[in-house]
């Protein structure tokens, strides 16, 4: 190998590693603080590694604060949204892809148009409507606005349009009703699309702050991002360790899931980008 090539490789590898460390730094710092004893957090010298592993911060975050509650709320909201999204989107996508009926093109055009609308745009009227209906400060307020998913309908439709229609004809001959075809045939077939969609949806809503900030004022309903802000604003600077432990706990589910299923995650989130 030529010396030039070798040098070039070393240089680019060095830069890539340096960049990766910079990207990693906030994570490392968060974990480091979460494991540091109180006195080391407030020391004035830079010290990445704690002198000893201090579990007390995690214990405190899990037992003396509402972090478990936030995690629970996050799970309820995220799974609630996902279940309803799929329940609504898959039958619609199946009909758009495999059935012929009046208004099909109109509804598909409607779906495409809905893709153009960012959620922020609908926030004020939905807030107004929910206030009228008296469902602000409920789980429903956090779940309902995300049930209609133009992106989900679009994704599933594209997938199901590629399935040969003979398969659905066979199911009709075998005696399945259209509803049964949706759930016994179409949905299992669309599982790859469903996985990508689920990853996208779960990540988006676990991490969302905008709507929970608007729709709820009850700390008992706080989702993880909303919750950690409550925690931070209450502790006023002297509980950094537990705060960082809480941040780590909230970030952990998705980060661990990502590390376990990198390919699927990258795919799911990249697909989601098409939504804009």
């Amino acid at each position: 190998m030529r010396l030039g090539t070798l040098l070039g490789r070393c240089l680019s590898l060095g830069l890539l590693v340096l960049g990766a460390l910079a990207v990693l730094l906030p994570f490392l710092w968060m974990i480091s603080l979460a494991f540091k004893p109180q006195d080391e957090i407030f020391s004035a010298t830079v010290q990445l590694l704690p002198s000893r592993i201090e579990w007390a911060n995690f214990v405190k975050a899990l037992t003396e604060t509402d972090v478990p509650r936030y995690l629970f709320n996050g799970a309820v909201v995220v799974l609630g949204i996902l279940v309803f999204q799929i329940l609504f989107a898959v039958p619609c996508a199946y009909a758009l892809a495999q059935r012929r009926f009046k208004g099909r093109t109109v509804i598909f055009a409607l779906t495409l148009a809905a893709l153009l609308v960012p959620f922020h745009v609908t926030a004020i009227p939905i807030f107004l409507g929910f206030a009228q209906a008296g469902i602000l400060n409920t789980y429903w307020a956090l779940i309902l606005p995300f049930v209609p998913t133009a992106f989900g309908i679009f994704l599933f439709r594209q997938f199901l349009a590629q399935v040969p229609s003979e398969l659905f004809d066979a199911a009709r001959v075998d005696g399945l009703s259209e509803t049964e075809i949706v759930w016994r045939i179409a949905f299992p077939l669309a599982l790859p699309a469903a996985t990508a969609f689920a990853i996208f949806s779960i990540t988006a809503h676990w991490n969302d702050l905008f709507w929970p900030l608007i729709a709820t004022t009850d700390p008992n309903l706080a989702t993880p991002p909303r919750g950690i802000l409550y925690f931070r604003d209450e502790e006023s600077g002297d509980d950094v360790g537990p705060l960082m432990a809480a941040a780590a706990l909230i970030t952990a589910p998705l980060v661990i899931a990502f590390l376990l299923a990198q390919r699927k995650f990258t795919q799911g989130l990249a697909t989601g980008g098409l939504k804009g």
Partner: peptide, 24 residues
């Protein structure tokens, strides 16, 4: 490995990471 590291912030909860940034 490096690719996973660079992608990590995309999957991480931005609000929680912002709190970490605040400490940094």
């Amino acid at each position: 490995v490096l690719r996973a590291v660079y992608f990590l912030p995309v999957a991480a909860t931005l609000v929680a990471m912002s709190v970490a940034w605040q400490m940094m």
